[in-house]
Design a protein around this nucleic acid. Structure first.
Lengths: 185, 185
DNA sequence: TTGAAGTTTCAGAAATTACTGAAAGTTTAA
DNA sequence: TTAAACTTTCAGTAATTTCTGAAACTTCAA
């Protein structure tokens, strides 16, 4: 494992950002290393390149697999396990979104649903429930929308993103082209 | 300040989620309290309701103001400062997105731009640069897209989100309705 | 069936992050 | 100008999170 200056900077940066993206420093570094490395890389090579313990490496890889960002790669004839990215950059980004949605939105949505079932005990609670219900609706929209975008597939998603301000114009026209059931009250 | 059971559950939950959303427990709790409370609330009331020190409260409020999620509210005749949400739920969600983009994407984008300026020293670096350039493009698309959505305004954004699977159909038709400059190669 | 080559687990140590509370700072009314 | 009412800062402590490394586990070839 080489670790040229360029790769080192990138790996270090991904480490720093790791915690903001939902995992920790070494997990970020491991991910960067696996993505930037052309060849499959073994756990031991990772530990050496990053100067971290073998144990920490093992946990980091487990976490990355739970995020479905890296996967094992069996090299025939080799006993040890190698690791490679679980897909192209687009796929990885999608997985990060999805996984974060699960961790950042779903639990709240489920709590809000419960809280909204209770009868408000008084005026204060009624007011709070209104707010909570607004939050609930917003989070549901976001969830539904992100699922929608996911099964649009990368190509269409890309088209949509590149469309830029065209989206606004398109919305103005939508009733003409999509009459009926999808019009919004 | 009351803190009925309902409000307590919500506040505690927002505290737990806080760290996943980019701030810490008490900041999350303070935010929930301010949003769910109908009336403006003072720093002292917040500290009492959450059982946290006055100093911590002050830091938390400062952070929430830096995220532009809460703002001061001067009550005439009162010396102390009161706090209220900086806008409706939609606005707050937008601010969180925006702020997180600044913290989670912008620094990486800027590093990637720098790294891509260097001449690759060898084959390994060239390969890594390709990957980095893919990541760069993806992050730029996301940034541009999120800005686009922001200045679409809440109403249109809502229309778009509610459109659901209609988006896919609309994209199929887009060349017919938006000919020319916005077509994607 | 043993042992070499590998992986995983997890208790404790190290590093990081959050919180407290006392002291310093600010504002306003008298 | 003083002092009461309030806010902010920040050094030190507490809580949490991450990391290490030794031990336990697994797999496979001989």
């Amino acid at each position: 494992m080489k670790m040229t200056p360029l790769i080192t900077s990138a790996v270090m940066h991904f480490g720093e950002m790791g915690s903001r993206w939902g995992f920790n420093r070494t997990v970020g570094q491991i991910l960067a290393l696996i993505v930037l490395n052309e060849e499959p890389i073994s756990a031991q090579e990772i530990a050496d390149a990053l100067n971290i313990s073998r144990g920490n490496t093992s946990m980091g890889l487990k976490e990355l697999q739970s995020w479905r960002l890296v996967k094992q790669h069996l090299v025939p004839g080799e006993r040890k396990e190698f690791f490679i990215p679980a897909g192209d950059i687009w796929t990885l980004a999608n997985r990060v979104f999805e996984e974060r949605r699960k961790r950042e939105i779903d639990p709240t949505l489920s709590l809000l649903r419960d809280l909204l079932l209770d009868e408000p005990a008084n005026g204060t609670e009624a007011g709070a429930q209104n707010k909570l219900s607004e939050i609930h609706d917003l989070l549901e929209s976001i969830t539904a929308w992100s699922e929608e975008l996911q099964n649009l597939g990368p190509e269409k998603l890309n088209t949509l993103m590149k469309l830029g301000s065209g989206v606004g114009r398109m919305l103005d026209l939508k009733d003409k082209i999509l009459p009926g059931k999808n019009s919004v009250n």
